[in-house]
């Protein structure tokens, strides 16, 4: 079965519309969404309503959580004072725009969603604020997949798509017991695991404005990273019309993302 997995729409309705059309053309039978439906972009309500109307299984992203619970992340969320200022401006604007039904929908979203040997999260199984970057330590990456009890872990949050295959995982654990001289040693091999980062629909950070998502074939374990062109100028115009900072439109048009990127990607937010 072909499935489509997308993430990080960030209130960009034009990008979502284009991706849904592409998914239809790819003949994917089911769609999953990894959260961050809102934040920065000009159409938070329309995006949520579209996702709801299509009954797409969705997990909660960090921005969705912030809209529900308020901004209470520790300092990890922003790489600079400027990014923090912009993030807070976007949060305040979005918080005023979302209607009660949308807020209620975002509040009930789960942090993880599991189906057969597939697990869907926003950041990582540990936290929707954690970045699973492609270069992160292999042991930590493997631990994150194992903790999800799945073979394929789909994530977003970094806004840059990638596929990482973790094979030949050999783990050896030594346990020191009190009053025992000998260490208990356990060794085991892990089956092949995968992390698939699906990129971002509405706020790409790969240097082009195009939306990205993933098509995955569960029968043959094949991944296709999709990059979809759309009328990003329409979203840029809507950003300006909404009174959001013009720099958001400028950055969107260049595939530069808006702000959020932790200094320490393995840091888990202490909230």
């Amino acid at each position: 079965m072909k499935i489509a997995v997308m993430s990080c729409i960030h209130g960009n309705y034009a990008a979502l519309d284009a991706v849904l059309l592409d998914i239809d053309q790819q003949k994917a039978e089911k769609i999953y969404c990894l959260g961050d439906l809102v934040g920065y972009g000009p159409h938070p309500n329309a995006v949520v309503e579209q996702i709801r109307s299509l009954d797409i299984p969705t997990v909660q992203g960090c921005w969705d959580e912030d809209i529900v619970e308020g901004l209470n992340a520790c300092d990890c969320s922003y790489p600079s004072l400027l990014a923090e200022k912009r993030g807070k401006t976007a949060h305040e604007w979005t918080n005023k725009q979302v209607n009660p039904e949308v807020r209620e929908y975002l509040a009930q979203l789960p942090h993880t969603y599991k189906e057969d040997n597939l697990c869907f999260v926003h950041g990582s199984p540990s936290s929707n604020h954690e970045y699973l970057l492609p270069e992160m330590d292999a042991f930590v990456a493997l631990e994150r997949v194992l903790s999800s009890d799945a073979d394929v872990l789909f994530c977003g949050h970094t806004h840059v798509p990638y596929v990482r295959t973790l094979d030949s995982g050999q783990l050896q654990v030594k346990v020191n017991q009190p009053n025992q001289d000998e260490q208990a040693t356990v060794s085991f091999n892990t089956p092949l695991k995968r992390i698939i980062n699906v990129g971002s629909v509405g706020e790409p950070r790969h240097g082009r404005p195009n939306a990205t998502y993933v098509v995955y074939d569960t029968e043959i374990d094949a991944v296709s990273l999709r990059e979809v062109e759309y009328d990003y100028q329409k979203t840029c115009a809507a950003i300006l019309d909404a009174g959001l900072p013009p720099i958001f439109a400028w950055r969107l048009a260049r595939g530069l993302e808006f702000a959020e990127k932790a200094d320490d990607p393995t840091h888990v937010c202490e909230r």
């Binding site: 600079s80 400027l82 990014a83 720099i247 400028w250």
Partner: peptide, 17 residues
């Protein structure tokens, strides 16, 4: 000024933002 903020501003400014 905060260095990372200044670097972001400088990049945006020199690229025409």
């Amino acid at each position: 000024l905060d260095f990372d903020s200044l670097a972001t501003f400088w990049l945006e400014m020199t690229q025409g933002a």
